[in-house]
Nucleic acid binder design. Structure first.
Lengths: 181, 181
DNA sequence: GCGAGATGCTTAACATGTTAAATGGTTCGG
DNA sequence: CCGAACCATTTAACATGTTAAGCATCTCGC
């Protein structure tokens, strides 16, 4: 596909680094990037193990959440496994098809779905958990158990400090002012 | 702690919490979850602002990376913006269609693509950067600037400590190389 | 009871993450 | 030169993230 813009000219319009024109924090100091990179470094360790059991990261999160309780409503599960409704809905459909979970509806409220892990799901967890724990132990050893706990605390504190902050409309003040009541 | 045992729970009846049968770290102490939640808490602040400018998080990452340089090869950009090739390929196609970036191919090697931000892209960045910086400042204020720097350091250290570790085959040792059926 | 609104979940639509395969270009041994 | 191996990027296929709609059910005021 020779779709490229065949711009044979000497990069004419391409000027100097825009960083001089658009003042902006150095990319490497972006907190979201740091969190993303750290998480990816961690997940890279787990993914092959999950993959060998045909589990995605999210499916594993759901099974773990289900394994800790007897049964749980879908909305509550979404909160626990930190998944949005639509994602959870799709994943539950697949996990049910694989018979790793069981569903019914809540008594007295047919809107609510109640989910629980199946025996087959428990067996799968038993197969995965040992290696998962081993990997976690290796990470903890490598990074330092104490430091790891400290990191967890700081992450929790960050989350807590931003809870209910909602800065999302900051630039509304900068640009146009309030649009909504 | 009770040991895991397939104690033949009744079929159909939903048994007791599987946590008794599958020993596993408490879900709330999962490092990947903590990182995910923290990152989401941060990104939740930025997303509305980006959305007002019709930018996704990844598109913004790319523009930021491009703004810091004159031009950059696709592979290098993927590393900088921490995106996989296929994702980057799609996003560049869209950004080019919106004329926010410009592409050409490297002299002497037609395989390599070279990307740079366009004037229009720079203008867009100029429109977004102020609110982005304001949000970042608010987060820093709220969490503590010093603490934030410390967190960044610890995240970097975590990433570094896991670099080249690759525990992915840990459970191959545990399961004796059971083949997938 | 009953109809409007609220609630719980699912579906739709589009963008990205992820792995595998394909495409086009380059390099190098013979 | 020639073709095989290699390299950079893209395309393909499937799963999830994200927002908006859609459906069924429930609640409540009248």
């Amino acid at each position: 596909m020779p779709k490229r813009s065949a711009n044979g000219s000497r990069a004419g319009a391409i000027g100097k680094p825009a960083s001089r024109r658009v003042p902006m924090r150095d990319f490497s100091r972006s907190l979201p990037m740091a969190l993303l990179r750290a998480r990816e470094a961690v997940m890279r360790q787990f993914r092959p193990s999950l993959r060998r059991h045909d589990l995605t990261e999210q499916q594993w999160r759901i099974l773990r959440a289900l394994a800790a309780v007897d049964a749980i409503e879908v909305t509550e599960l979404a909160r626990t496994a930190f998944l949005l409704g639509p994602s959870l809905s799709r994943i539950l459909r697949d996990l049910e098809a694989r018979r790793l979970i069981e569903r019914r509806s809540a008594e007295g409220d047919l809107r609510r779905g109640v989910v629980s892990i199946s025996e087959k799901g428990v067996k799968l967890m038993s197969a995965v958990a040992p290696s998962s724990e081993a990997i976690y132990a290796a990470i903890s050893r490598r990074y330092g158990t104490r430091k790891l706990a400290e990191l967890q605390d700081m992450l929790g504190a960050l989350e807590a400090s931003l809870a209910g902050l909602d800065l999302g409309d900051e630039d509304a003040k900068l640009t146009s002012g309030r649009k909504f009541a």
